[in-house]
Structure formats: C-alpha cells, structure tokens
Simulated assay, not measured.
Amino acid sequence: MSAPVTTHSPRADQPSDHGPVVAAGLVDAHIHPDKSSWGGAWMSRAAAADLSEFIANDLATQRGYTRSVEERAHALLQSALASGTLAMRAHVDVSSELGLRNVEGVRAAADRLAPWLTVQIVAFPQFGLLTNPGTEAVMAAALGAGADLVGGIDPLGLEGDVAGHLDAVFGLAARSGRDIDLHLHDGGEPGLAQIREIAERTLAAGMQGRVTVSHAFALADASEPRLGETLDRIAEAGIWVTTCALGDDPVLDPGLLDRHGVQLALGSDGVRDSWTPFGTGSMVDRAHLLAYRTGAMTDAELERCYRAASIDGGRLLGIPEISLPVQRDSPTRLEFPGESLAQIVVDRPAPAAALRDGRPVPGR
C-alpha cells in the first residue's frame, strides 16, 4: 500500500512553499475513554506490581469519580477530534457491578460528536468474564445498549480458563453477529499459544478479518521459537493486532508484522487514568511514540507509523473514507504545516485543517 500523498521542499532547512502536507485522517484503534480523568483535576495514582493490582486500582478509581462517564469521555473525545482523530475503537468496561452505565455514558458522549467522530464501542470485561459472575449477561445486554463488539481479556493470565473464556467470547459473537476485540497481555509461549488458539477458532467460525487481538505482548519477543509460526497463523486467520507503545509495555514491530502479512493498527490505550498519568489523545503523538520505540529512521519507516495510526486503523474499523491514501482534493483529509509526512511524525504538529466528507471539522 502506498503512503499518503506528501509534499517536500528542495531543502530541509527551508520552509515549504508547496502548501500543507496532506494526510489521511487519524484513527485511534484502542482507547479507554470511560476510565479517563481528562478535563478534571490532577489525579495521583497508586503503584501497582501486576495486572491484578492495576485492575483493583482501576475499580477503586472508577468508584471515586464525581464526574460522570459521559462528561469525562466527552472531554477526551472532543480533544482527540481537535487533534485530527476522526474515528476510534473504545474499549468500555462492563461488569456485574458497573452494569451498562459506562457503555451508555460513552455512547452518549460519542453521539454528541457525530458525524465528525466515529466511535465503535467494545463491551470489555475488564474485571473478568468467567471470574466475575453475571458479567456475561451484562456483556450480552451491552450489545443492545450501544456496544458494537465483543471484548475479552487474558483467557489464561486473568481467567485461568482458556477454553471457557474463548467459548464465552466466540459464543457471544456468534449469537449477536458481532466482531471480537480481545485484550491479551500474557507474554512468552503461553501468550503465543493463546493467540494460535484464537486463530484456530477464528478460522473455524469463518470470522477471518473480524477478530482483533489487542496488545498481544507475546508477539514482541523475538526470542520466542514459535513467534514466526504464530505470526503466520495470525495472517492466515486474517486477525488484526493493535499496539499502543505505552510506557514500558512491549511494542510490536511494524516491519516484522509486515513481513508475515499481519495487519497492525495503533491506539492510545489509557489516557490520564488510573493505569497511567500519560497520554494526550493525539494520534500524531502516538505515531511518534511508535516510531521512537521501534527505532524508525527512514522516511518510509516514519510514514509506516503514521499509516498504522490512520489508513490501517480505518481499514480495521471499516471506514472507507479513512482506508485509502488521500489526494489534495480528497473530501476527508488532514492538512499539516510542514514538508513531509515523516517530518510530521517527528515534530508532532496539530493539523491546521481537518475535513470529513468535504466539510471542515468544527471546533478547530
């Protein structure tokens, strides 16, 4: 796939006189707006040694918020839109305790920004699907209350039952006709084995192109003997993977995935929530972090990181106007000050203009 159209001046030390850099709209393929404290006072965070402690901190933080899910999510979504994000996939908590309130809050926030920002909601069992009784029923209800996809989380590491967890996730997807986006933090061969099992189930269910594995930290360990085999199985099953280049988390190598034919999109993950004090909601910032973390050097490598945050995300979410390289007159596009798309990834400017379907995006 060719990179979005860019402009170049004859010399890198002189400003371009050929107009702005034109680029595809940005897509945040993995974000948690219901958890965010965006727009509120500074929030101090407790330390966490493992996933279970992070999850406990998260639940305590959500219980303590005084601002509604809709208010906090809208503040973050509005900021992301101003930074050029035109679509996102939001992973939103559902559980026996939270019920549908987070899904309803994020959907209400998203509706206020339509049609400029497209938001897909994943019903996400952050606190366990099997281990938190009643959550599976809430997941099913969420799919009729604003959620678009079925989520899942660490079938082995959190739930301790790979077959049971995947039975529930794929069962919900089959009954509702929805796609799947499943968190997988487990590393090493246990993580790879779960990914291969997800690939097998995807093929058996005929869901090629409709399943995403988010984070997929096991795919970042080049020392694993079965990494190549696992990547080939993912490609065969048409599974998407998302990475977020967040903090000290493992980050997936776009070049390696490209060589195996694996589809990659980029997201923010948590933004100013109990999990992290960092994040801006800008996918230009996130493309910069992906490039930095993976040692991008050439223009092609830098542009590849932008593509993961734009066109490839548009393909994942199935948004035609953000799924192809743009031209100067494309009705959906961003315009940046600068000389080239590679420079944009390094310098991280805000877009000077954003259009969707030929209309300027408001609030810029």
Rank of each mutant, 00 (worst) to 15 (best):
I239T: 12
L264Q: 05
P133G: 08
G238W: 00
R304H: 05
A235K: 08
A245I: 13
L316S: 03
A147N: 15
I153R: 12
A350W: 14
A205Y: 00
D179A: 07
I198R: 00
D232W: 03
L77P: 05
R101D: 06
V345I: 14
L117C: 05
P320A: 01
E335L: 05
D312M: 04
L117G: 07
D258Y: 04
L302H: 14
L100Y: 06
I180C: 00
G164E: 07
R89K: 10
A222W: 02
L184R: 08
Y306S: 02
G134H: 10
E335W: 03
A222K: 09
V103D: 02
L81V: 09
P125Q: 10
D148V: 05
Y292F: 15
G19T: 10
G157K: 13
G338N: 11
V103S: 01
L266G: 02
W116M: 06
V119N: 02
L86V: 07
A204S: 00
V262C: 03
G314Q: 13
E53C: 04
D154N: 12
P320V: 01
L26F: 04
C305L: 09
S268D: 13
V5Y: 06
S214N: 13
R175W: 01
D181S: 13
T298A: 14
R201G: 00
S37D: 14
G160M: 13
R356A: 04
R315H: 09
T131I: 10
A87S: 09
V251R: 07
D299R: 09
G39R: 13
H183L: 07
W116E: 11
R210F: 00
D17Q: 14
R67C: 03
T118K: 05
A145K: 13
R304I: 05
F124W: 14
R45H: 11
P254K: 10
L149S: 01
Q194S: 03
T118I: 10
R201Y: 03
Y292R: 15
H288D: 02
D50P: 00
